[in-house]
Design a protein around this nucleic acid. Sequence first.
DNA 1: CTATTATTTAAGCAACTACTTAAATAACGA
DNA 2: TCGTTATTTAAGTAGTTGCTTAAATAATAG
Lengths: 124, 124
Amino acid sequence: MTKSCIRVFADVAQIKQCKTEIDRVAPTIASIARALSLSGNEVRLKILYLLSKESQLCPCDLSDILGMTVPAISQHLKKLREGGLVVSEKVGQTVFYSLHKENLNVINPILDSLVITEQKSTVS
Amino acid sequence: MTKSCIRVFADVAQIKQCKTEIDRVAPTIASIARALSLSGNEVRLKILYLLSKESQLCPCDLSDILGMTVPAISQHLKKLREGGLVVSEKVGQTVFYSLHKENLNVINPILDSLVITEQKSTVS
DNA sequence: CTATTATTTAAGCAACTACTTAAATAACGA
DNA sequence: TCGTTATTTAAGTAGTTGCTTAAATAATAG
């Protein structure tokens, strides 16, 4: 870290500009990275996909569908809720989870691309 | 796991259908989740963003720009390369990294959304 | 009130991540 | 060749993640 790149082709102005630019977008990148790492888990991505298909599901349903324990599911849902990607509504003893559509600008294209990828592979 | 959801409103047919559907898309989800978890790291997302702006950068540049040690950067680049998100080309002692555009269908919308988000926040 | 059901929370733990420092590899120039 | 530079690899480690099981919380029915 003390020594920096001194190669002949290094473009000092370019590097400086990159530093400025990355500082500028850093907060946005941090927030997007958070959303991506949330959905970068196989179980949570499945939950998001299922919610995009079914509009709402409870932890119990998801436990059945994904073949996992209820606490395991609940902990994933907690992360998704805290990350603002899903919302929950309690109806009696049951808690229904659904996508938090307003916060899904990062995730939506991914779910879309999933559908597209599936269509492609179904066709071929 | 042994006991399944027995609530009154549970829709057995819906659950069964979801199971079938999730099994069908599981391989695609796994591969997308891998790409998302790769780009769900702040440093790696910054690298991808910088490469989308600069077309090619070496580990040394990135170390300078991001204020991190070269080995730390190198290890991130290795993951991105193994995940197929970037490619490298050696020129003399320098290794230039650039985006592997063909494999970026999952990541591209994210980088785009980053630009869009930045424009929004700049305007407001 | 008591038992049952749905969900969440907590504690423990194995596996993974992302850094560190040191060493290895490779290209270059004097 | 020797010393320098660019990069990668390796080993060690603190922190994080994702599960497990057990316990806590809350709603409902008898």
